[in-house]
Amino acid sequence: MTKQIELSGVNKYYGAFHALKNIELSIEKGSFVALVGPSGCGKSTLLRSLAGLESISTGDLKIAGELMNNVPPRKRDIAMVFQSYALYPHMTVEQNLTYSLRIRGVPKAEAKKAAEEVAATTGLSQLLGRYPRELSGGQRQRVAMSRAIIRHPKAFLFDEPLSNLDAALRVHMRKEIRTLHDRLGATSVYVTHDQIEAMTMADHVVVMKDGVIEQQGAPLELYDRPANRFVVVSSVHRR
């Protein structure tokens, strides 16, 4: 297996605050990795560093073998699904989907065709002409996903994408995201504070606390052989 994302000795400081402490993580191509931990543990910072929205203070970050430390987000070829979806309110669904293609100078007809293809797989075909404000929460979520997959990026980053959905839809979308991931053969990094989400969706779970990776491994490995009490609490469904 090839390594799609590699982090070695990554540290991040905000002034005196040490947000990420000596992170070592390698993510294989095609795998689904969940970053889990309580709020403020650094999981979102780590994800944003992968996207290039935060710079890392020390260490190396490689995507598909290339050093990305000082590469701006637009040149990293990654896609991100935000917690708030971050759909452009002044653009229709189709314009939202094709925005990344239009920036890259893809011809209009080609972009439109790509949007239609993606919309067909995510069930948005009827909604291409609508604006985000005219969509339900679940539909917005689908648009955010579609916008990410339309340009076949090197990796997908998810920042708690399901936290704004109601419980039933959330369970449904978990399965859908995982299915999509398998079908696209994509590499995904998924941030969540929900242990169930992490344990059920991911191939590889990374448990974080206070900027440190406490343990990482396959879901069952963490469940059966937790490294410490924190991982136990993080990997077992709390009642």
């Binding site: 996207a51 290039g52 929205l53 701006p72 987000p73 637009r74 990654i78 896609a79 991100m80 935000f82 917690q83 708030s84 971050a86 452009y88 309110p89 925005y99 990344s100 920036i103 890259r104 916008r147 340009r151």
Partner: peptide, 13 residues
């Protein structure tokens, strides 16, 4: 929202 700008950055702008 700042996230909209970040989305545009990740989208390639």
């Amino acid at each position: 929202p700042q996230e909209l700008e970040e989305a545009a950055l990740v989208d390639g702008n």
